[in-house]
Design a protein around this nucleic acid. Structure first.
Lengths: 233, 233
DNA sequence: AATATTAATATGTACATACATAATAAAGTC
DNA sequence: GACTTTATTATGTATGTACATATTAATATT
């Protein structure tokens, strides 16, 4: 067989996707089984499998053993968000990065914080407030709680010099990260810290991480006014 | 070889990930090549390849032909957001879904809208304003522009009955979707539509879609107060 | 008819092999 | 030294085969 004519899995994916787009296979429809598509296209089943893997991850089709492949009836719009280290984010915008530690003390975590970890029993955690600046202007205000039983080393880190954000992400990899986004009105304190108006609408990025089942940290990153978070590709 | 002892690609991934987590391979470090890992673990290279594919997609490692595999120096926190059809989202919360068309007319798109499509020349687009309700309470206010040259069929759709959101996602698949999130203060109009206070902080989900290089639609979904957007697994 | 058991089946995985591709390193040229 | 050309090499892909696994469908059992 002429190798130049061989289909790549991206070709196969695109052709199947095209058939979904032009409604040859409409939402809810069942697709032929991989073997049939492979024979139809003149390629190996594993090539179809690779294409289907991609379509499945994109949320376009759903696959079940024995059940076959179906076009998702209720298509979802799926996107990926990347949250880099704040320093890097600022520097990639071509701004000068600065960082200020506002507060750092052990505290009994309030219920709202415990809830993010899925814990009930009150426990003392390291509470950190810090400000990230871009070109000397407040950029992100972070309100963080770190679990010192999972991450005892954090007690020896000079958080006035290096942000917990940076230290954690470089030194404490996580296996699970829950994230959420919401809007909040700038309180008196927050407005003062971010040097903005009381009542301004601010985007909050909340993240909670674990290693295995051990909680690492939870953070509310309150962004400055006008902040916009974009998805990747 | 005893098949029961064979490593699955998830095992391989987990073991490599563990070595990254315990800093055997620290950020920026180069990993052994697939062949070596395969021999080390006693599995086929393709199994390592599958594991690496996953780690690469998760943003944990970076792979380059000939260059090899490196642990990402500046780790990013990566997450996936799924935006379902609004009806489905409301119903999955166990609420009654309703929908109201507020406005629907052809209009010259303002520059801000054209910019989202990456267009310069002013053009007339279908402008739609609509309200999604959950248990009779305003849930999401959508402000949408549809490109009628790409989607002429939309002109024949009764948007008073079926939301453009739903119709488009079911009938006009897209190949590209740009998304962004930000916070906004409720204007007089928005506050009235969402039945909330003037100046409330609201999360806006902005999406723009294309099929190939043809623009389909762009929408600002202004959520009601307290709305929180979560990432997937 | 409802339930448990068994068979059938489409997708998923593991492996070996051969080749493709993109980056890098080495060698050659001016 | 600066530039171009040419190997070299690690990852990526395509294929075939053999099994594993999860689900559905069929059958037997109560």
């Amino acid at each position: 067989m002429n190798r130049d004519l061989r289909l790549s899995w991206t070709d196969v994916r695109d052709r199947i996707q095209a058939r979904i787009f032009d409604r040859t296979y409409a939402p809810g429809d069942k697709l032929p089984k991989d073997d049939e598509i492979a024979e139809d296209f003149g390629c190996a089943r594993s090539t179809v499998q690779r294409a289907m893997q991609d379509l499945s991850q994109s949320g376009i089709v759903e696959r079940r053993r024995k059940g076959g492949t179906t076009v998702r009836a209720d298509p979802v719009t799926r996107a990926t968000v990347d949250i880099p280290i704040t320093r890097r984010e600022v520097e990639e915008r071509g701004c000068k990065y600065d960082y200020q530690l506002i507060r750092r003390e052990m505290e009994i975590a309030p219920k709202s914080v415990l809830a993010r970890f899925g814990m009930k029993v009150p426990i003392s955690l390291l509470h950190i407030e810090a400000l990230h600046l871009a070109d000397n202007r407040p950029y992100i205000l972070e309100d963080r709680w770190v679990c010192t039983t999972t991450v005892p080393e954090i007690m020896n880190v000079d958080l006035a010099q290096k942000s917990a954000n940076e230290w954690l992400v470089r030194n404490k990899p996580f296996s699970r990260c829950d994230m959420s986004f919401y809007a909040t009105k700038a309180s008196h304190d927050v407005a003062a810290q971010l040097d903005t108006e009381l009542g301004d609408a601010l985007l909050v990025i909340e993240r909670t991480t674990w290693i295995g089942s051990e909680p690492i940290t939870t953070v509310q990153a309150v962004t400055s006014p006008g902040y916009q978070l974009f998805t990747q590709g």
